[in-house]
Amino acid sequence: MRFLILLLTLATFVPGPGAHAGNRGDGGGGGGRDSSNTVNNRTTREVVRLLESGVGECLQLFEAYRFDCIRKTYGFAARKIKGGIDYQPAYEALRSVEKRVEAAVNANADPTAKRIRKGLVRYSAVKPAAIAAVKRETIRAMEDASTVLLRSPAPHQKPHFQKIAAVIDSNKVLLRSALLRGPVQLYRLALGLWPVAPLSHRG
């Protein structure tokens, strides 16, 4: 009899199959599991923050260095959601921007300009004559990524992908409207005569 009572007691407290299942991309902030495998507010906010603040910092650099900075920023954001099943289309969109801008930077690298460092990251310059073309390719890559994100997301992905697309569009507008640096400044920078970031002041 005691054994039967013990079994009934255990059955009362053992949770059912769905008791610990998190809400899939709940968009709410309730008690859903916060994992990059499913779309969730925390991860989406982090990706948006990385793209917003990262590109903002890139645009503070001399224009020749901005594009290498942008491609690394998109790479950092992509790695934030790498392996996430629901974020896979967003990951591929961000990686596409990174790879296309990287190809443009590598094809137009300026061998006469020094690399600069901001924080722990180093950036390379493109040739002054190629800045306009690299800028156009960067903007096109951003436009294509935004289109992919908005085209066909599942209902639970849609609000998250819309937020990422919105910050990409914002990046594009800022890049398009950013003022050009003059050729004299670029020339001085290439010769190492113009400090760009708070590095050591040797030489």
Rank of each mutant, 00 (worst) to 15 (best):
M1P: 14
M1A: 14
R2M: 15
F3D: 12
L7M: 11
L7Q: 06
L8R: 06
P15Q: 08
P15R: 12
G16A: 12
P17V: 10
A19H: 04
A19C: 04
G22M: 02
D26L: 09
G27A: 06
G27N: 05
G27R: 03
G28F: 07
G29W: 13
G30F: 10
G31F: 04
G32T: 09
G32W: 09
D34Q: 15
S35L: 15
S36R: 07
S36D: 01
N37T: 06
N40Y: 05
V47M: 04
V48I: 05
L50I: 15
S53Y: 04
S53G: 02
V55K: 00
G56M: 07
G56E: 07
C58Q: 06
L59K: 00
F62G: 05
A64H: 07
Y65W: 03
I70Q: 04
Y74I: 06
Y74K: 09
Y74L: 08
Y74N: 10
F76A: 12
A77P: 05
K82I: 14
G84Y: 15
Q88H: 14
P89D: 01
A90E: 01
A90F: 00
A93W: 13
S96C: 03
S96V: 05
V101M: 05
V101T: 03
E102G: 11
A103K: 00
A103Q: 01
A104G: 02
A104L: 04
A104H: 03
N106D: 08
A107D: 08
D110F: 01
D110R: 04
P111D: 08
K114M: 12
K114R: 12
K114F: 13
R115I: 10
R117N: 10
R117G: 10
G119T: 09
R122N: 05
Y123T: 09
K127R: 15
P128T: 07
P128V: 02
I131F: 01
A132L: 12
A132R: 11
V134A: 04
R136E: 08
T138R: 06
T138S: 14
T138Q: 06
R140D: 14
A141W: 13
A145Y: 03
T147G: 10
L149I: 02
H156Q: 12
K158V: 00
P159M: 07
P159L: 10
H160C: 03
F161Q: 03
Q162L: 00
A166D: 08
A166S: 10
I168M: 02
S170N: 04
V173Q: 04
L174G: 03
R176Q: 14
R176H: 11
S177L: 14
L179F: 09
R181I: 05
V184K: 11
Q185R: 11
R188V: 01
A190W: 03
A190T: 02
A190D: 04
P195Y: 12
A197H: 08
A197C: 13
L199H: 08
L199S: 13
G203L: 15
